[in-house]
Write a protein that binds this DNA or RNA. Sequence first.
RNA 1: GGCCCGUUGGUCAAGCGGUUAAGACAUCGCCCUUUCACGGCGAUAACGGGAGUUCGACUCUCCCACGGGUCACCA
Length: 549
Amino acid sequence: MDYKYLAELLFPCVTLTPEDMEKRYPPRNLPEGAVVSRHAPSPTGYVHLGNIVQSLTSERVCHQSGGVMYLRIEDTDAKREVKGAVGILIDSLAHYKIRFDEGATADGDVGAYGPYRQRQRRDIYHVYAKYLVQNGMAYPCFCTAEELAAIRKRQKAEKANLGYWGPWAVWRDRPIEDIEKALKEGKPWVLRFRSTGSIKNKYKFYDLIKGEIDITENEIDIVLLKSDGIPTYHFAHVVDDHLMRTTHVIRGDEWLASLPVHIQLFKALGFKLPKYAHIGPIMIMDGNSKRKISKRKDPQFGLIYYRKCGYPVESVYEYVLTILNSNFEDWRRANPDTPAEEFRFSLKKMNPAGALFDAAKLNDISKNVVSTMSADKIYADLLEWAKEFEPGFARALEADPDYAKAIISIGRGGKKPRKDYGTWSELREYMKFFYDDTFDVVDEYPEEADKSDIKATLAKFLETYNPADEQGVWFDKIKAIAASLGYAPEMKEYKQNPGTFRGSIADISMFLRVAVTGKLNSPDMYTVMQILGEARVRQRIESMLSRLG
RNA sequence: GGCCCGUUGGUCAAGCGGUUAAGACAUCGCCCUUUCACGGCGAUAACGGGAGUUCGACUCUCCCACGGGUCACCA
């Protein structure tokens, strides 16, 4: 077979050579040990936790080493194309603070190793495709989908290994005449790799996360170029990561199975093999069993879920970091105020088995994250969230920012900050009773509470209430009310002789709390009253009095 | 079916041949406290099963079971 002739037949317009590519994309001038890696998603319009897990891992490893992190768009599948998806993707990643040094951006490409959208790299792939054909390492295949299905069917019947390989590779050694004829007839074709591997050959390979793994050589003649001339993932991965001078390929472990193909391709093209790190899947509990988290079944997989709930981006970021490197938690406790970027991330610490999505853990982390934020920061983030999901609430916030910030400031700062909420939707619930239009008596008085005592407490409080009082004075007044009604003003006294009192200061406080906040539980009542202001406090207590009749 | 990866408490997980098998979340007590939240103290709870190797195995080897991935002109 005259491979040079075949190559001209297949790729008449390709004049550049692999050497030209080497010149156009020279090795990067980076210090020893600098990692070059990337996030390479396909733009389906659905951005998920997996994207964050992968991109965050790569980004940490790159930037910790003084290397380069870039974004490459894997848009080789025309069927899955969703318009606007690239923009959504870029926005989401930016929202989660994934920092790219080069690659695709909203305004086009940045960097010297582009284009970074695979569809635009067609000519580059064809240079290598032609090279492989010239050297007898690739050939055209004119099989139709039906023919391939038939082969598959026969393989199943014969219990042969599935796939286009060896004796089943019907176009692998066709005479040039057959190829010319098919070409002349305008039959669509794909370019296949001529595999020389055998599944009898096995060897060890070191994966940065999985450790030592067993590789069985690939013997399938995989598709390099689809009939539209666009490469498959495998071919694009090898060409791009070589030309973009990627040192570390960090990706989900669903790719582990095709690693033999990739290694084979790197060798065939004479490229230096990058290091690989395969991340285990994110799992989720489904009843009593674990399964891989899925786009269709689990809303928590989509990033939009976290946005809707109002999880601060920092929370999701720290949660993912916790899942990936469990020692992050210990580090965070020891360094509560240090930016997460200073944590020393390690691929070795990653669990090869993956991690389970744990909503309770996320919530806990989020509460901690929020507890360390300033009121101004919370106000700004809350407002942004509200504008998108609770426009009415957003207007209320903007109408009186100082009022909102005063509410947010309750129990903030200091050594033991309150942790009432971890998301903006929780905060919105929490803030409801501070606003008259969302205030509601959600908790009724307990059955055993004496109605006349409640009324007496409320009435007496109104008589003596002075918003100018210091907290001590304010509380002494409430204690006086308690004493006057036969309730123990001190809990200690009450606990010693509960029988001698009608109740305790706790009950008296509760009578007031329900009237003022509508709830059995609230933050410190003095602070709450200070924020609400005299008018609201009086109005709510009066309204409760008239409710009680 | 072939090939590959994985399996420590309910969950996330330390551990890398000798440990009372960390810590966190969750759960349950107690303390603090005008409620709640926070915080403090404590409790329950684990090496999938079976053979080896070894003086000794959660750690090494093999087999089995279970879970997962993959075998597309999808990534």
